[in-house]
Each structure stands twice: as C-alpha cells, then as structure tokens.
Amino acid sequence: MPDLVIRNLHANITGTDTELLKGIDLQMSKGEIHAIMGPNGSGKSTLSHVLMGHPGYEVTEGEVLFEGQNLLDLAADQRSRAGLFLSFQYPFAVPGVTVANFIRMAVNAHRKGGPDGVDNPVRIPEFRKQIQEAMELLEIDKSMASRSLNDGFSGGEKKRFEILQMAMLQPKIAILDETDSGLDIDALRIVSDGINRLVGPNMGTLIITHYQRILDYVKPDQIHVLMDGRIVRSGGAELAHELETSGYADIAKEVVS
C-alpha cells in the first residue's frame, strides 16, 4: 500500500456547512514527488491543512491512511511525530523563541516519539552540527539561528526556515504549501536545490502551487489539478506546461463539458 492514501476526503470549515473539499482521492509514497496545482480558492491550502490537522476544518467523509494508520484520529503533533510535515504558506512568528531553540525542541519531541516515548534529547554539539549543515545547504546565514522564529522575517526568509525545519525533522511525507510564493529567482533555486537534496528513498513531497515555476526546478512524478474541491485531472510533468500555456480556464471548460 502507498505510504499516504487519501480516499473520498470531504471537509468543511469547522462548525459550518461550507464544504471546501468535495471528495479527494490521492495516493503517494516516499521517494515520489507529486504536485497539486489549481486556481485560487480551489481548496489547495485547505487540503494541506486538513492533512496536517488544522482545528479550523472538520472532515465529514472519507479517510486518510498514513503508513496504514488512520491519520485523522491523530492530533497535529502526533501527525508530525508520525512523519508528516507541512511547510506553511504563512508561517507564524514566535517572538522571544530563537530558531535554534525551537527546532531543538521540535527535534526532541520527535525523538521522544509517541506519548509513551522515552525522553532522549539530542546532544547539543550534535544538534549544532546538524543545523549548521542544513543552514549551509539553504544558504542561511549562521547568525539567523539566534533570531526569534519568523519574527520580522521577510516572506522569503520564512519559506527558507520552513524548509530548514523540514530538513531537521526529516519527515516521510512533506507537504509544501505555496513554498515558491514570495521567493525571488535566486531564493527559489536555493530552496529547490534543498528540496531535491532531501527528497529520496526516505522522503516524498506533495508540492502545492499556483504556478508551474517551481516545477522547473523540482521535477514532479505526477501532477494533479484541483478545482472546486476535487482533483479533476492527473498526469505527468507535461501537464504543468499544458496549464502554463492554456491556463486553468480550458480545463474548467473541459471538466464541465
């Protein structure tokens, strides 16, 4: 069975009848790169947050299995410790908590594992070495590690730090929600290089994007087009170029007709 299996997933905004996901089916495994493309308001970000466990959405139908385990039974922190990661489109600032301290706490929470886990904190010299390597990979200046997390960061810096956290937590499946937005061309190359280095037999990624731009750097195995809460088409890398030239409107027509 694939590592991530999404079956007929429906979700509402919590406490309302507003349905944003209207039956999503998708399967992927570690080592694979999938991309979800779609126009604004099609449900791309909703899907990423429903998978991560955002309290603002409730699943009304369907199931999600992660390595055979029912993901929807788990709280967001448990999903993270199980090996799911979400790079936020709009990461939150945590003033007074440094990047290094925060990531160390997160790494230690992962090392501890589940609720019955044994406390086994990472040794500080080992942690320092790992984070410095990851920062070099993403061309982040060392001094940034002692700044407050996302506090006063530019949009591009925030995105790099999301990928830094991904590198340190080594998830099995990473969802990258609009990671390319707000990045200039150099930053996009650096972040994409980082993603390419990290994806491998132990990690797969689901790239959520509005534009085909990032897919020039990170080559997807499969592309899915999301419209109005449903995946309307799936295909290979060529689908991105088709979208780029003809736009979402043509597909919309196709779907309706």
Binding site: G53, H54, A76, D77, F88, F92, F102, M105, A109, L169
Partner: peptide, 16 residues
C-alpha cells in the same frame, strides 16, 4: 489557536 497549531505541526504537544 492557529499559532498553537503551527507549533503542534512541528511535533510539540498543545501544552508545550
């Protein structure tokens, strides 16, 4: 709630 969710998505419990 969203800020807590963000930190939880990195593996910290709600209390942490």
């Amino acid at each position: 709630e969203e800020q807590i969710y963000y930190l939880m998505s990195r593996g910290l419990s709600e209390a942490e």
